[in-house]
C-alpha cells in the first residue's frame, strides 16, 4: 500500500513537472512585448533580400506555424503539447536546414547523457563516501580539513570552476585540449574511447568537483547525527565491528535523504552542466541550446528546451524510484 502511494505521488509530480515546464516554454514567447515572428521577419528584411508580397506572406505563415501561433490560444496550447508529447516533431532546424530538430537532439543526447550520468554518479558516490568517513570520525583533523575544503569548493559556480580548470590545465600546464575535438567518422575503437575520455576529462572534472563539495558537506552532517543514535550505540555494545557499523548502520540510514536530495538537485546539476558544456564546446544538448539561441533558430530552441525539461523530469523520476530499493520500510509495508 505504502509503495503504491509512493509510486503514485512520484508519477503525479512527474506529469506536473512536464506540464508546468512545457507550459513555460509555450508561454514565454507569448508574453514578450515583441512578437518573435515580426523579429524574424525584420531580420530577414535586414539581410536586404528583395521579396514579393506573396513571398513575405508565406514566410510569415510558416513562421506562425513554427511558433504554433495559429488559431485561438487554447488551440495553440493543445497543438503545442501534441507536438511535444506525441509526435516529438519540431520541424526542421533553420540553422542546419533541412535537418529535423529531432535528429540534432538525437545526435547530441548520448554525449550529454554520458557526461552527466558519469559525473553526477561519480560525484555523488565519492562525495557520500568522503562525507561518511568525515561524519563518522568527525573529531579527527582530517575530517575538519576535508569539510573546510568542501566548504571552499561548494559555493563556487560550475563555470568559474571550469574557467579555473581551463586556465590551469590548458593554458598554464597544457595537459588537456583547450576545446573539445573528436573525429566523428572514426569507427568505434579503443583509441576513440581514449580520445573521448581525454577530451571529456575537464568538463567532467568541473561538474564532479562542485557536486562533490555539496555531497561531502551534507553527508557529513547526516552521518554525524545518525552516528549519535541509540541503535548505533546498541550495535557497538553488541560487539558489531566498527567498519560494519559504518556501512550497515550509519551509511544506510544517512544515504536515504541523499537520494531524495539527488533527485531534487538534478535540475540544478543540469543547469550547471549546460554552461560547462558551452564553455568547453562539448557537443551535447547544452551546446545545442546555446547555438540555437545565438542563431535565433527557434524550432531548435523550443525543441531542445522542451526536451531537456522532459529529460530532467524523467531522470528525477528514475532516481526517486531507486529509493524503495534502499528503504525496506517503503517496499514491504
Amino acid at each position: 500500500m505504502r509503495f503504491l502511494t509512493f509510486l503514485l505521488s512520484r508519477l503525479v509530480t512527474y506529469i506536473l513537472v512536464i506540464w508546468i515546464g512545457v507550459t513555460m516554454v509555450f508561454l514565454v514567447p507569448r508574453f514578450l512585448p515583441s512578437s518573435p515572428v515580426e523579429a524574424m521577419m525584420a531580420k530577414v528584411a535586414a539581410q536586404g533580400q528583395y521579396m514579393e508580397a506573396a513571398q513575405i506572406e508565406s514566410l510569415r505563415n510558416s513562421l506562425m506555424e513554427t511558433f504554433g501561433l495559429k488559431g485561438s490560444l487554447f488551440q495553440q496550447y493543445t497543438g503545442f503539447f501534441k507536438r511535444v508529447l506525441l509526435t516529438g516533431d519540431f520541424g526542421p532546424s533553420f540553422s542546419a536546414f533541412p535537418t529535423p530538430v529531432s535528429q540534432l537532439v538525437a545526435q547530441a543526447l548520448p554525449w550529454s547523457l554520458g557526461l552527466l550520468l558519469t559525473s553526477s554518479v561519480l560525484g555523488w558516490l565519492l562525495g557520500n563516501a568522503i562525507g561518511l568517513f568525515a561524519g563518522y570520525r568527525k573529531e579527527t583533523l582530517a575530517s575538519k580539513a576535508l569539510e573546510f575544503l568542501a566548504m571552499l569548493i561548494y559555493p563556487i559556480p560550475y563555470y568559474i570552476f571550469a574557467l579555473v580548470l581551463i586556465i590551469l590545465f590548458t593554458y598554464v600546464w597544457q595537459i588537456f585540449p583547450f576545446s573539445f575535438y573528436i573525429d566523428a567518422n572514426k569507427p568505434l575503437s579503443v583509441g576513440l574511447i581514449k580520445d573521448i575520455v581525454y577530451n571529456s576529462a575537464l568538463p567532467a572534472l568541473s561538474i564532479i568537483a562542485v557536486n562533490l563539495g555539496w555531497w561531502v558537506i551534507s553527508m557529513k552532517a547526516l552521518s554525524a547525527s545518525v552516528a549519535e543514535e541509540d541503535f548505533v550505540h546498541f550495535a557497538r555494545l553488541k560487539g558489531v565491528s566498527e567498519p560494519r557499523i559504518m556501512t550497515h548502520y550509519v551509511a544506510r540510514n544517512a544515504l536515504l535523504p541523499q537520494i531524495t536530495m539527488l533527485a531534487i538537485r538534478l535540475g540544478t546539476i543540469f543547469n550547471g552542466a549546460l554552461i560547462t558544456e558551452i564553455l568547453f564546446g562539448f557537443p551535447g544538448v547544452g551546446t545545442l541550446i546555446y547555438s540555437s539561441a545565438l542563431q535565433a533558430d527557434y524550432n531548435l530552441m523550443l525543441g531542445t528546451i522542451s526536451f531537456s525539461v522532459i529529460a530532467v523530469a524523467t531522470a528525477t523520476l528514475i532516481v526517486d524510484l531507486t529509493y524503495p530499493l534502499l528503504d525496506p520500510r517503503i517496499r514491504y509495508r
Binding site: G21, I275, A313
Partner: peptide, 24 residues
C-alpha cells in the same frame, strides 16, 4: 507541496536562455 516539488525540478536555465534569446 506538489507545486514546490515541481518548480524545483524544472530546469530554470534553459527557460532563461529562451527568454534572453527572444529579448535579444
Amino acid at each position: 507541496s506538489l507545486l514546490m516539488d515541481t518548480f524545483i525540478v524544472v530546469p530554470s536555465l534553459p527557460i532563461l536562455i529562451l527568454l534572453a534569446s527572444l529579448l535579444q
